[in-house]
């Protein structure tokens, strides 16, 4: 078995203790969002000019956005505190590096683990979306891998940065000044072309905007191959930079 799989199996063993609660939350959270904002607020919004949101119900408009945003949220909670804990608080990685495992195995293992967590929340979210009749196309199934990729695009660079942290204050700042503004302004609740021009340009630099745009195009059945490739490329570049950076920072912190 490869080293990365051994790291993954360690994390899965820990997850066995908490999986019920974790899966429950993954169901409840989209139900609450889609019921309150999608259906509740949507009953007011959908009376407005429907063409602004692509001719679909408000619930069908925000559901894919929430899917991508949930992937971002999950990725950021998995790649902040837990990473610092394994580097510094609990020294899990030190124990692993005293065995034949290498820094490359650690980063690979974290990548697999993040894929697993993102796949789990994305699939559950997709099931809830379908239950709310917000899935309008067969190509919508592709929204699941795109959501996973969106989570990786955000989470992997954060993971590289988290390995350097020694207190949790920077994480509070990350959530307050990056994650929350992206969630609110990144295209989940309204089209980002409604933002002032400068903010719109900034939004397109973030992985979330591309993740939201592509998942939305897929679930509403309006995806075009060329723009889809563009979005995937941006997300993949973010993820690749994250892995390369994590290999550097993990080595700096753990194998000095």
């Amino acid at each position: 078995m490869s080293g990365a799989l051994k790291v993954l199996s360690h994390h899965l063993r820990l997850y066995r203790r908490v999986w019920k609660g974790s899966v429950f939350v993954s169901f409840v959270s989209p139900v609450l969002y889609l019921a309150s904002i999608g259906v509740g607020l949507g009953s007011l919004v959908s009376r407005g000019p429907a063409h602004a949101i692509g001719g679909v119900s408000y619930a069908a408009f925000i559901a894919p956005g929430l899917l991508a945003a949930t992937a971002m949220m999950t990725a950021s909670s998995e790649t902040t505190f837990p990473i610092m804990a394994r580097v510094y608080w609990m020294r899990t990685y030190d124990a692993m590096l005293a065995s034949p495992l290498t820094v490359r195995d650690l980063v690979g293992g974290e990548l697999l683990w993040l894929c697993f967590r993102l796949a789990l929340v994305s699939v559950i979210f997709f099931v809830v979306m379908a239950a709310f009749h917000t899935v309008h196309s067969v190509q919508a199934l592709f929204a699941i891998p795109v959501a996973i990729l969106s989570g990786l695009a955000f989470g992997l660079p954060v993971m590289a940065w988290s390995a350097k942290q020694r207190t949790d204050t920077p994480f509070a700042l990350l959530f307050r000044f990056v994650v929350t503004p992206l969630f609110v302004l990144g295209g989940t609740f309204f089209p980002i072309d409604r933002l002032p021009r400068l903010l719109e340009d900034i939004a397109w630099l973030t992985p979330l905007a591309h993740g939201v745009a592509l998942t939305r195009a897929l679930t509403t059945g309006q995806a075009a191959l060329s723009s889809a490739l563009g979005h995937v490329t941006v997300l993949a570049i973010y993820a690749a930079i994250g892995i390369a950076a994590a290999l550097v920072t993990f080595r700096q912190e753990l194998a000095r």
Binding site: L14, R91, T92, A95, P100
Partner: peptide, 19 residues
């Protein structure tokens, strides 16, 4: 560097897997 999220014996046989 013991794993506080694992039990005593789990600490050993989880570690065995790395080898």
């Amino acid at each position: 560097t013991l794993d506080r999220e694992l039990r005593v014996a789990e600490n050993l046989y989880t570690y065995a897997r790395y080898f």
